[in-house]
Design a protein around this nucleic acid. Structure first.
Length: 203
DNA sequence: CCCTGATTCGC
DNA sequence: GCGAATCAGG
């Protein structure tokens, strides 16, 4: 495969969208991520100034100078995006699939067979029945979760959140998930709890 | 181990 | 110009 105009454009587009080199390579087909990266560099757009996936970079140049008044650059460049903020809990712009359920099971290891989805699940929602078996499995599995951080999540790691996102007691399951599923088997069980208890008639 | 981008260098 | 191999990191 060669770098046709179209392919280059797609490359540019995806790269500026913050897609990873491997993803781009996959999309393009016929090339490896190395090829993509190589091309990116050759094109001189190694600096992803459009997607802003990087927080802050460099320039730790603390000049000992006392006087520093100089217009750096009149209007060098920065035409597009205004730099996105770092996502705290919902990263993955287009990579990770939206989670159908946002379970934040209390980090209570042994006991409490409750599966709250958030925090309040007080009322009478009937559609809240989850397999006790599945629950048990989840509780079990979470004991030896890998406790991955956000960065460590991949397409093959379970992205089930555990603990309180507002504290340090927060991590992701991280157990191997298979076949494109965002969660490990145990969590898939409770995440995609298809309403089977009460099939709705209309709609 | 999985992944990321960066660089090198023979082609 | 290209990209595999390698490097450096999370």
């Amino acid at each position: 495969m060669s770098w046709t105009d179209e392919r280059v454009e797609l490359l540019k587009k995806m790269w500026s969208e913050g897609q990873s080199a491997s993803q781009i390579a996959k999309e393009l087909g016929g090339v490896t991520r190395n090829a993509v990266i190589g091309k990116v560099h050759r094109l001189g757009l190694s600096n992803r100034t459009g997607g802003a996936a990087e927080p802050a970079k460099p320039e730790p140049k603390a000049k000992p100078e006392k006087t520093e008044a100089k217009a750096e650059k009149p209007a060098a460049q920065s035409p597009s995006e205004p730099v996105e903020p770092k996502p705290a809990a919902k990263p993955a712009p287009a990579a990770a699939p939206a989670q159908p359920a946002a379970p934040v099971v209390a980090a209570t290891p042994a006991r409490k067979p409750i599966i709250p989805a958030g925090q309040p699940l007080p009322p009478q929602p009937s559609a809240n029945e989850i397999d006790p078996a599945a629950l048990a499995k989840v509780g079990e599995v979470e004991k030896h979760a890998k406790k991955l951080s956000l960065m460590e999540l991949t397409e093959r790691t379970c992205k089930w959140p555990i603990g309180d996102p507002a504290t340090e007691d927060f991590w992701f399951c991280g157990l191997p998930s298979q076949a494109g599923k965002p969660y490990c088997e145990a969590h898939v069980g409770v995440a995609f709890q298809p309403m089977s208890s009460r099939r709705d008639r209309r709609r």
